[in-house]
Simulated assay, not measured.
Amino acid sequence: MRVEFDEPKCVAAGQCAMVAPEVFDQRDDDGVAIVLDATPGADQHDAVREAAAVCPAAAIRLVEQ
């Protein structure tokens, strides 16, 4: 799995960072999400899928490999 993130679409809701904190975080200055691990391990796949599903801006795209 590869995580693709469309930063301009991010509304800084923080859902991704709450659901998958090992993969997503938020910038301190504006709350926009950042990807910590663009190729998370299999143990993180369920959380990353949930993070993409709950993103209110649909800014997270997952490429299954």
Rank of each mutant, 00 (worst) to 15 (best):
M1D: 01
M1A: 13
M1H: 04
M1E: 05
R2I: 09
R2A: 03
V3T: 01
V3C: 05
V3A: 00
V3L: 06
E4Y: 12
E4L: 14
F5H: 06
F5L: 02
E7N: 07
E7A: 15
P8N: 05
P8R: 09
K9M: 13
K9Y: 00
K9H: 07
K9C: 02
K9R: 15
K9T: 10
C10S: 08
C10E: 10
V11A: 12
V11D: 14
V11T: 13
A12N: 07
A12K: 04
A12H: 08
A13N: 08
A13R: 02
A13Q: 06
A13M: 06
Q15R: 11
Q15C: 09
Q15Y: 13
Q15L: 13
C16G: 06
C16W: 07
C16K: 01
A17H: 12
A17L: 13
A17P: 08
M18Y: 02
M18P: 00
M18L: 14
M18C: 03
M18G: 08
V19E: 08
V19C: 02
A20R: 01
A20Q: 01
A20G: 03
P21K: 05
P21H: 03
E22L: 11
V23C: 04
V23F: 02
F24D: 04
F24Q: 00
Q26R: 10
Q26F: 00
Q26P: 01
D28T: 12
D28W: 01
D29Q: 12
D29Y: 13
D29K: 04
G31V: 02
V32C: 09
V32H: 09
V32D: 02
A33L: 12
A33W: 04
A33Q: 03
I34V: 15
V35W: 04
V35F: 07
V35S: 06
V35C: 04
V35A: 10
V35H: 07
L36G: 03
L36R: 10
L36H: 03
D37Y: 10
D37K: 10
D37E: 15
A38I: 04
A38F: 02
A38V: 05
A38Y: 05
T39R: 14
T39N: 14
T39C: 07
T39M: 13
T39Q: 13
P40T: 00
P40W: 01
P40R: 00
A42Q: 09
A42I: 09
A42H: 12
Q44W: 05
H45C: 02
H45P: 02
H45N: 06
H45A: 14
H45M: 11
D46I: 11
D46A: 15
D46L: 15
A47S: 14
V48S: 06
V48L: 11
R49A: 13
R49F: 06
R49M: 11
E50L: 15
E50C: 09
E50I: 05
E50H: 09
E50K: 11
A51V: 04
A52Q: 07
A52H: 00
A52Y: 00
A52G: 09
A52I: 03
A53M: 06
V54I: 12
V54E: 05
V54N: 08
C55M: 07
P56R: 12
A57W: 04
A57L: 05
A57Q: 03
A58D: 13
A58G: 14
A59W: 06
A59F: 01
I60N: 01
I60M: 11
I60K: 07
R61T: 15
L62Q: 07
L62Y: 09
L62E: 10
V63K: 11
V63E: 15
Q65I: 13
Q65R: 14
